[in-house]
Nucleic acid binder design. Structure first.
Lengths: 217, 217
DNA sequence: GTCTATAGAAGGATAGAC
DNA sequence: GTCTATCCTTCTATAGAC
């Protein structure tokens, strides 16, 4: 099932926008299989025929939407903004701020929903998995790695391989809360839980990568 | 959609076993939506009526199977065995061995498939998410935490909170390879990649939690 | 472009014979 | 318990009028 993503999303029309908006919410919230074209048409106040006038098939509509969602919503702006700043003295406050932004973003309902959908339909739409991976984790890791490398230059951290270090920081931020939230178990994480997780992760990260750490063991 | 898991799986019958075997492979491999009762009946060499004689509905069959898969296949036996041994001198080789077993297990096709299915259908079957979480991550983390705590007692590591430390080790093992494999991007990880990831994770973990580390910063 | 109405296929579930 | 044959619903996709 090799469905091409809509090639020319250029033409704007009210109906088309309504379709995209409605379908995005439905698909992201409920997944591919659970959403019917009828439901999309109803939610968009459009007939099914109009739907098919704009999109060749359900597959094409889904692929277009999820692809766009991956591209548009992956890297939080204020995270990128944080990356632009270098700390004056101690790196710890910067790391805590970055960790809080990143974990908070990952735990947002919309982020979790996209993550779920991409994993769920990865077998049917391999190109979506790649779009998600390239626009999300890869970009985030690269940005964080570059920032870490700059701190190494400045003598504020001791980073061997920036990408590995970025993976380790992100990896220590995620467990517990993220998996629980992805599976929808228990109550949503509180800000206090997020803060505690970030504190633990940053502390461990600084012990492993702080100034004066010896990498070669 | 609150589907009860089969209450009495006690009675063994050849047909029933054939159904369970066939359906397990299909569901785990392709997910709930993509598998039809027709396909299951065909794969099990059984009529659809027989299917419904043994299981009340597709939902019930699915829930029974995934629940069982979560319970049976979660914690690798040789991982548990490794937990029983305490290292003689340096902990590093033990950590590397444990990390290799755990990461290798997580990357097995069957493990990845279960992980995908549980995340995909988590909204429709909340009890499956819980079954997976309790039998998989929670048990693994508890076992690893207990082992880490023992190493702390023996002065081989410096562990503040064992569960947090276990989360951090597992978190540093997973990124990169695990997400890529879950999304099915690129080639499956090679043993060399696995080994390198484990080495990096264990090195960072030992810098953060090795003997003589000061926790309170 | 947009609608109403419908064709055509697939899937979940069951009736009734053995 | 097991089978064959079938019902009924739902879904994707399209035909034809405006």
């Amino acid at each position: 099932m090799n469905v091409q993503v809509e090639a020319s999303p250029g033409i704007e029309s009210p109906k088309r926008t309504a379709i995209l908006d409605a379908a995005t919410d439905l698909f992201v919230e409920q997944g591919y299989g659970a959403v019917s074209m009828d439901a999309i048409a109803r939610a968009a106040n459009v007939s099914k025929a109009t739907l098919y006038a704009h999109f060749a098939s359900k597959d094409a509509l889904f692929a277009t939407i999820i692809n766009e969602a991956c591209r548009a919503r992956m890297l939080p702006d204020d995270f990128a903004a944080g990356m632009a700043l270098d700390p004056c003295g101690d790196v710890r406050p910067s790391l805590v701020a970055l960790g809080r932004r990143l974990l908070g973003f990952l735990l947002e309902p919309r982020s979790l929903a996209i993550h779920r959908v991409v994993i769920a339909e990865g077998a049917r739409f391999p190109e979506l998995g790649r779009a998600f991976f390239e626009n999300g984790p890869v970009k985030t890791c690269a940005a964080l790695g570059a920032w870490l490398a700059r701190q190494h230059e400045a003598g504020r951290l001791t980073i061997g391989d920036p990408l590995v270090a970025a993976d380790h920081l992100i990896g220590m931020l995620k467990p517990g809360l993220f998996l629980r939230a992805t599976l929808g178990i228990g109550d949503p994480p509180t800000q206090a839980e997020i803060d505690a997780t970030v504190e633990h992760a940053v502390s461990a990260f600084l012990r492993a990568y702080g100034p004066g750490c010896v990498q070669g063991r």
